[in-house]
Design a protein around this nucleic acid. Sequence first.
RNA 1: GGGGUGGUAGUUAAGCUGGUUAUAACGCCGGCCUGUCACGCCGGAGGCCGCGGGUUCGAGUCCCGUCCACCCCGCCA
Length: 594
Amino acid sequence: MSRFITEWKKSHGAGELRIEDAGQTAVLMGWVDAVRNHGGTIFIDLRDRFGVAQVVFDGASLGEADMEVAKGLRQEYVVAVRGTIQKRAGKPNPKLATGEVEVVSTDLELFNRSLPMPFQVADEVDAKEETRLKYRFLDLRRPPLRKAMILRSEAARLAREYFASQGFVEFDTPILTKSTPEGARDYLVPSRVNQGTFFALPQSPQLFKQLLQVSGYERYYQICRCFRDEDLRADRQPEFTQIDLEMSFVDPDDVMTTADGMIASMFAGLKNVEVPLPIPRITYEQAMTRFGVDNPDVRFGMELIDLTDLAKTSGFQVFKSVAGEGGLVTGMVASGGAAFSRKEVDALTEFVKTYGAGGLAWTKRADGKFTGPLAKFVDEALEKALLHDAGMKDGDLALFVADRDASVARTAAGRLRGHLGNKLSLVNPDEFGFIWVTDFPMFERDEETGKLVAMHHPFTSPNSEDLDLLSTDPLKVKTRAYDIVINGQEVGGGSIRIHDRKVQSQVFEALGIGEEEAGRKFGFLLEALSYGAPPHGGLAFGFDRLVAILVGADSIRDVIAFPKTTRAACLMTEAPSQVDTEQLTELGIGLIEK
RNA sequence: GGGGUGGUAGUUAAGCUGGUUAUAACGCCGGCCUGUCACGCCGGAGGCCGCGGGUUCGAGUCCCGUCCACCCCGCCA
């Protein structure tokens, strides 16, 4: 057995060596980051979790046999080195935290070799994501991912400490649970013991956390995995992690204040950023009017301008007809946008078209004049709206979307605003923009079926003053729901729940869910509401999204150790995969040929 | 389900309007080198050009299909 394992334990993190440590004996263990062989002297950069340090091998300090081993070292070999920490004999390397010192080796052990690497273990790797995901265990050696993983761990620790300090009780809720086909598709798990029946993996612990309020725990939290079998995006994975909480005897303000505290604790602890509390709150209606989206990036202004009234008398036929038919004309003044080329403006038109808008009406302002397609329709009223109300100046670009479907125009304009915010560098990437969006509508109409569906979920409590509207004008019902948005990304959402069995029935009725169906799907919850359910509400944070914002990652894949592709597959394990016929038979499952 | 971008040595890329032996960098292998730090120098190996079909005298290049990765729309109570 190696003396390095039995006798000499690892003494220092490679990245932690400093000039003050000179003279000490160090035992380092880690990976060969780079080899510089000069014949008589060999340098390696030895890397571990903590960083890299230079190790020197030469015939004066190292025995002949170990020197032969040193000559054979290659990238990513795993080694142990014993030696003396010294001030560097050569020049210091200012690029390294350990750049003033080196370890002059007296003993060397090669623990393991490595095949040539599919890509370099470096800060900047230009390997395709496909390659990185296949060799994720190597990708995770790279410093940016290592830092993200460690920050993620710290974020979870801060959350736990915060919730503990606030008197929350941590729970585990079932992973094998009941399918609730409302909402997202479930991942199903067949039951062997009860053939022909299925568990579902939870889309969220929603019902369990409400039940725990009925059980009287008052403050619940959990950092838990959730599963949704839907199509993926940069910010969506089939399994993702949620910080889930629920509280009794609270109103929306209590929950938001509690969430504010957790956010502040994380940003202070991990980014040294003091979040001004309370985080500002706007209603859904305000968000949609001012920003066109329910997840506004509030790091910049460029708020939307509603031209619908002006458009009614406009000479521009598109505006006039849309305004006359109850549609919406909305847009914004992009400061500095006049510099865009025709090609760039055309690209913006294509951008809004992806959201279903017909096109983009625009005019530039230069030398005190309007130019561009909309210019000849700028009448006195529009000129006042642009120059006076919106503060349009020389060098600016005004862009408008008109659509008979107000929500199409709003969404297109809102997304365009976000797009332009980045394109025009209106956002400082080191800044964070926090906002709560509240009072979401209870229902929206399903485009396909024409039926009402719950915008959040059917357990969301309506605003008490809107209760009568449930039966008369349900689309007007607002809820005690709230989303927290950071940098234009929804990172959490929740609501006060219904704790009154009668109100719950009214909501099911509005949704067209009968008593029988409600009982079959959510019977246990409805029953619980009948046994002394306290007023309660809560929230769930998308932990992956939160960490991605904290580390500045573009995709949550970069903060998940073993993420899946947009086809919901794991390139490393090659899951999902086929299974033996015996396994299927035992479950009573047969496959259908397509 | 729809739209877009990409797939060429181990890796990342170049390869024009189809035309000799498909380039380069890094990595890999061999040799030299005692102060480098992305060490350097000399030499070498390495390719089903994603896969299948088609057009053509000739296809990495053009056409059709298909698979994979990523981005977006739909979807995500």
